[in-house]
Every structure is written in C-alpha cells, then in structure tokens.
C-alpha cells in the first residue's frame, strides 16, 4: 500500500544534498524502507551546536497520506521533545501534515524546532518550566546533554587521532586527513600511507 517508489526517490533526493542541508536519511535495515534513520546536525548558535542527532523514522502504510512517525533516538534536552522517550511535539508530524511534505522537509522542520523551542506547547513539562523560569540553567543542561549524548562520534575521533599519531603520523596531518574522508579510520590510514 505504501508508495515505496516515492520513498526511494526521496532518499535519492536527500543524499544529493547532504552537503547543503547536512540532513541524512538511510534505511535502518536493508529489508524494508518503512524503518529509516534520519540524522540532523544541531543548529549553529544553539545549545545543540556541534551535536549530531539521530531520529528514528517509521513510515505508516498510508505514507505519504499519513504523517511519518518520528522520534529522537539521541537523548536531547528540549521543551518540545520528551527527555525520556524522544517523542516530538511538532504540528506537521500530526494534524498539519501534508502529503506534499517529504521526510527531508519534515527533518528540516525538526531542526528548526531545535532552534526555536515553543515552551507554551510543551512535550516535556519539566524542561519547559526550566526554559521559562531559569533560561541559563536550561542552556547549560541542553549543552551538557549535547556534549554527553550527541557527540559520541567526536569522542571516537580523538581515539582515532591518538591511534594514528601513535603510528607515527603528525597530529595536524592526521586530523586533516580524517576530516577529509569523513572520519573513516581505515580510509584515513590508506590516504596517509599513499600520500
């Protein structure tokens, strides 16, 4: 019943523009297109900056006539996102969904939600209270959560750098190479050896 042709096209469209939007959508398993994982970078100038947030996407049978089900897999401290379950309170994922929207536009809206919280319509009452009453603490907590949960790969980077430096490559070169291959340790080693 689901329009897999459209989903396939959406995935292709999205992968073309990863550089521009930073938004990535990939199937969770090879078996089905109904379960996907979306990745959005934390918006610059927010406590989420520098983090990479993973979102679980489940497509209902009626997609695109019914909205996709989205939920944060990465823990995030935000008034409209449950700090427990990752559930997102966003109108376009509910009654304001339109079949003309896509997974990418929906993820862009989620990213916009990170930049502009709406504490008057909260999903997580505790976070919303903190946002309204003690904004500084809110920013601190949100940043801490970003550091702790949304930067796991960046901790990995340090380990990779250390490993490659121990092999005898200069640190600056190692960092540059790792960045150029998108953090893949083996590709970086190959490049370092060949270069």
């Amino acid at each position: 019943m689901m329009d897999f042709a459209r989903v396939q096209k959406e995935l292709q469209e999205c992968s073309k523009d990863i550089e521009g939007s930073g938004i990535r959508v990939t199937p969770k398993t090879d078996a089905t297109l109904a379960r996907l994982v979306g990745t959005i970078p934390g918006p610059i100038g927010t406590p989420y900056e520098g983090g990479t947030f993973q979102i679980d996407i489940n497509l209902p049978d009626g997609y695109p006539f019914e909205p996709p089900k989205m939920q944060f897999a990465t823990k995030v401290w935000h008034p409209n996102i449950s700090s427990q379950s990752g559930a997102i309170c966003l109108d376009i994922l509910k009654d304001q969904w339109s079949p003309a929207l896509t997974l990418k536009t929906a993820l862009l809206s989620v990213q916009a939600l990170l930049s502009a919280p709406q504490p008057d319509d909260p999903q997580d009452a505790v976070v919303a209270q903190q946002y309204l009453k003690d904004y500084q603490t809110f920013v601190g907590t949100a940043r801490y959560w970003t550091e702790s949960f949304a930067k796991i790969s960046s901790l990995g980077v340090e380990e990779k750098v250390q490993k490659l430096v121990e092999m005898g490559f200069p640190e600056a070169l190692v960092r540059g190479t790792l960045e150029s291959v998108g953090g893949d340790e083996n590709l970086a080693l190959e490049k370092l050896c060949s270069g």
Partner: peptide, 19 residues
C-alpha cells in the same frame, strides 16, 4: 480515503502544505 476513515469528512483540507 485516509481523511474519511479518520472521521474528518467535514473538513478535508487541500494536500498542499499550509493550504
């Protein structure tokens, strides 16, 4: 069909976003 089955027959909006 989706909207009628959701019980929204009386207010089926256009498919365009924000219309």
């Amino acid at each position: 069909i989706v909207k009628i089955n959701e019980g929204q027959s009386r207010r089926i909006r256009c498919m365009e976003h924000q219309c």
